[in-house]
Every structure is written in structure tokens, then in C-alpha cells.
């Protein structure tokens, strides 16, 4: 068994990377893989898995949603690990919700298992827990290793945490921390030597789920966290969710254009948005090829320059 930098044995987890980290947010996957051993994790990537449905299949065809997620959980369990690690809020809620349904309803689990076996998937016993990377490193041994790994530090970089929704609410299904007073991202920013920037919209919605169907409404939602973070003096924002990241980073130019139309004196946002694994990765000295900041739409250069100064 391989070991972390301090000699501790690595904890093996089933790694479900989800759609975005495979596609438009590859930088999330590369930085997560590079970071994992430094925070005591060995990633066993799940191959035979699909999209969790992102809340969309849950809405459109709820029974199919349940089966797709049961299949992911079953393959996760088959790795022998007790933990299935996610790197996306939406995957986290979808998988935890399905898991909760299956773990608390024997008849439902039996029906789903019969269907899984009929198509050649191993049955699911209900023994795996779904945890976001954030939860594995915000406390306990993961947090201690994180503090050691983040030796380069963020040198007082002012970082605004943005949680997004589906890692906090509904707390009955997520429940890692108080959904109104979360602390995990703050603890990590501080462990990395950054300065936490607080602002009310850090627990609100980024607008992403409706950014294609209701762009105007979504952009007004997106406006709140970015504007509040800038007003509070943030150099950058950090998020545990690649969908929030897409919204905050890739749609920032659209937000600027829409704000300029309404207010000619709007001062454009240039807010760098970091994935959780990238923020820690910077402090832990990951390579540029692992962080892949070139894949961001809003330049991260000002952050890197501030750290080099």
C-alpha cells in the first residue's frame, strides 16, 4: 500500500468523477488526482458508470434516475471501499438521495436489485457512503494532512468561499455541516494560509440549473455572489462544484454584458474562480499541467502574480 507524504497509509476511496470532470472541467479531474495522495487518499476510479442525471433525470424519469444511481453505488461498493468520493455538488446530492432511499426502504432496494441483476450489475447491499472531497479533507486526518501539504501557502490571498446549494441543502440528505452557517471551505482556506472573505450569498444559488432555459433569471442569481465577493475585497472565489464553477467562470462575461446593458457604468467583473482542488493545489505546489488554469475563461493570472510577489 502506498503512503502519504508523512508516511500514513493512504485511504482508498471509490472515485466517481462525474460528467464535467471528464469533459469541460478536466482541470478538476487532473488537480484532484494530483492532490489526492497529498491529503491521504488513493483514488480507485469507477469505470463502468454513467451520469448521475444531474437532477434532470431525477425530474424527468425518477425511477430511471434511481436505477442509474443504484448502479453507480453498486459498482462503488464492488471496489471494496466504504466511501464513494464525489467532486461535484450535484453528483453528491443525487447519489446521496438515491442511497438514502435504498438504505431506508427494503422493498425498494429489493426491486432495484432485481433489476440491476437482470442487466448484469452486481446487487447493492447499501454499505457505501457518498462523500464529497470537501468533507474528507475539512476535518480529521485529511485536514491534518492538508495542513502539512499546503506548505507553500496562499500568503494571505483573500479568498471568498462559494458553497452553492446541493452540498448544503436539503440538510437531511447532506448533513455534513449547518446549511446556514457552513465552515468547511473557510477551514480549508485558513489551513492553506489564505484569508477568508465572508459574504451572505455564499450559500445561495449560482443559477446554473436554469442557465440555458432561463438565462436572464439565472444571471440575476449569479450576480449576487460575484458582486458581494468583489465588494468584500476578494482576490478569488473557490467552489466545490464544477457546475457552480462553469456558471461563475464561463458565464461571467455574459453577466458583464447583461449588466452593461442595464447600467452603462457597470464595472466589469474579472473574478478568478478556483475549483477546491486547485486552491489547495496551488498551496501544495502542484504543477501547472495538473492545475490547468489555461482552461479557465476568467484569467487566474492576478492570483498567481499575487502569490509570486
Amino acid at each position: 500500500m502506498s503512503a502519504a507524504t508523512n508516511g500514513t497509509a493512504l485511504r482508498k476511496v471509490a472515485y466517481y468523477k462525474g460528467c464535467l470532470a471528464s469533459l469541460s472541467a478536466k482541470e478538476l479531474d487532473t488537480s484532484t488526482r494530483a492532490l489526492a495522495p497529498k491529503v491521504g487518499l488513493e483514488l480507485d476510479e469507477l469505470e463502468s458508470v454513467t451520469c448521475c442525471g444531474a437532477g434532470d433525470i431525477h425530474e424527468a424519469e425518477p425511477d430511471y434516475y434511481l436505477h442509474l444511481n443504484a448502479r453507480i453505488l453498486a459498482y462503488g461498493e464492488a471496489t471494496g471501499s466504504d466511501t464513494l468520493m464525489t467532486v461535484c455538488n450535484v453528483c453528491t446530492l443525487n447519489l446521496r438521495q438515491a442511497n438514502h432511499m435504498l438504505q431506508n426502504d427494503e422493498a425498494l432496494l429489493a426491486r432495484v436489485n432485481a433489476n440491476l441483476e437482470a442487466v448484469g450489475v452486481p446487487p447493492y447491499s447499501g454499505a457505501i457512503e457518498v462523500k464529497h472531497l470537501l468533507w474528507l479533507i475539512a476535518e480529521g486526518e485529511g485536514y491534518e494532512l492538508l495542513k502539512q501539504a499546503a506548505h507553500k501557502g496562499l500568503k494571505g490571498l483573500r479568498v471568498a468561499p462559494f458553497y452553492g446549494c446541493q452540498i448544503l441543502r436539503p440538510s437531511k440528505l447532506l448533513g455534513f455541516e449547518d446549511p446556514d452557517r457552513p465552515w468547511s471551505l473557510e477551514a480549508i482556506i485558513e489551513a492553506c494560509g489564505g484569508e477568508v472573505v465572508d459574504y451572505p450569498a455564499k450559500i445561495k444559488c449560482c443559477g446554473f440549473p436554469i442557465i440555458q432555459a432561463r438565462e436572464e433569471t439565472a444571471l440575476r442569481e449569479l450576480m449576487q455572489p460575484i458582486a458581494q465577493a468583489r465588494d468584500a475585497g476578494a482576490d478569488a472565489m473557490v467552489t466545490p462544484c464544477p457546475l457552480c464553477h462553469l456558471s461563475l467562470d464561463a458565464w461571467q462575461s455574459k453577466l458583464n454584458a447583461s449588466e452593461r446593458r442595464e447600467n452603462p457604468r457597470h464595472e466589469d467583473f474579472h473574478m478568478p474562480i478556483l475549483h477546491l482542488s486547485q486552491l489547495i493545489g496551488v498551496a501544495a505546489g502542484l504543477e501547472a499541467s495538473e492545475l490547468k488554469f489555461k482552461r479557465h475563461v476568467v484569467s487566474v493570472k492576478p492570483v498567481l502574480e499575487k502569490l509570486e510577489a
Binding site: C19, L20, S22, L23, V49, T50, C51, G53, A54, D56, I57, E59, A60, E61, Y64, L68
Partner: peptide, 14 residues
């Protein structure tokens, strides 16, 4: 929403 269903049953990923 329907496109996610289509994606899941054709390629598996979105």
C-alpha cells in the same frame, strides 16, 4: 431534462 435521459442511455455520460 430529456437530453440528460437521452445522454445516459446512449453514451452514459452527458
Amino acid at each position: 431534462a430529456k437530453w440528460f435521459v437521452k445522454s445516459a442511455e446512449t453514451t452514459g455520460w452527458l
